[in-house]
């Protein structure tokens, strides 16, 4: 069995959904997994830990239609400091929109990085409704898809998988409104305040 390294490239790694997705991946894999949050200052440390790793899994959210800038900085670091042995790169990405395919550009950017820097590319899991699905009745859909994702990497039978809440767009928009209104309420902010058109 290969040794895996999971890099959580969420800008809010310690309390991110990406951390929860990474934990689910770790629980499904029977081999060794090292979990590492990405920070501004630990690039060299992560590179050192990559020694002997067969598979590198990047787990992160979609940011402004693309890779989070913190991950972009790390990829540029890897370009400058390539590891002695390049592991196979797989990607688990989530976005808050209903459509998992909104993650595609970011995935293509990861593929391009891998091609340009000679990393083998593995599997992809694109998650839609990723902000809320883990605490919804549809969590089981994620669990099943993550099992398939993990199996595909372990068996080197790479594939691209997608999952989201099975809701119509209209229902999802209404569910998201309720989610965010509750989120604001916890901060003492009303829906009307959240809907302000004022900027600064």
């Amino acid at each position: 069995m290969g040794n895996w390294m999971i890099i959580n490239a969420s800008p809010r790694a310690p309390r991110s959904n990406s951390k929860r997705y990474a934990q689910m991946v770790s629980q499904c894999y029977e081999g060794t997994v090292v979990y590492c949050p990405l920070t501004k200052t630990n690039h060299s440390e992560l590179l050192a830990k990559m020694d002997g790793v067969s598979d590198l899994l990047f787990v992160f959210p979609l940011y402004a239609d693309a890779l989070p800038v913190s991950l972009l900085h790390f990829l540029k670091f890897l370009e400058e400091h390539p590891p002695a042995h390049r592991p196979t790169v797989s990607v688990l990405i989530n976005c808050g929109f209903l459509e998992p395919e909104q993650n595609e550009i970011a995935v293509e950017m990861m593929r391009l990085f891998c091609r340009q820097n000679e990393y083998p590319f593995g599997s992809v899991l694109e998650i839609g409704s990723g902000e809320a699905i883990l605490d919804s009745p549809f969590r089981f859909l994620i669990a099943g898809k993550i099992r398939r994702f993990v199996r595909s990497i372990a068996e080197r039978n790479y594939r691209t998988l997608r999952v989201t809440m099975p809701l119509t767009k209209g229902m999802f928009v209404r569910a998201a409104e309720s989610y965010w209104v509750n989120y604001g309420k916890q901060n003492g902010v009303t829906k009307e305040q959240m809907q302000t058109m004022q900027i600064e």
């Binding site: 929109f97 459509e99 998201a176």
Partner: peptide
Amino acid sequence: QAFLRIVQGET
């Protein structure tokens, strides 16, 4: 805003 709308068939 945090809230969503449908634009060109996407949220």
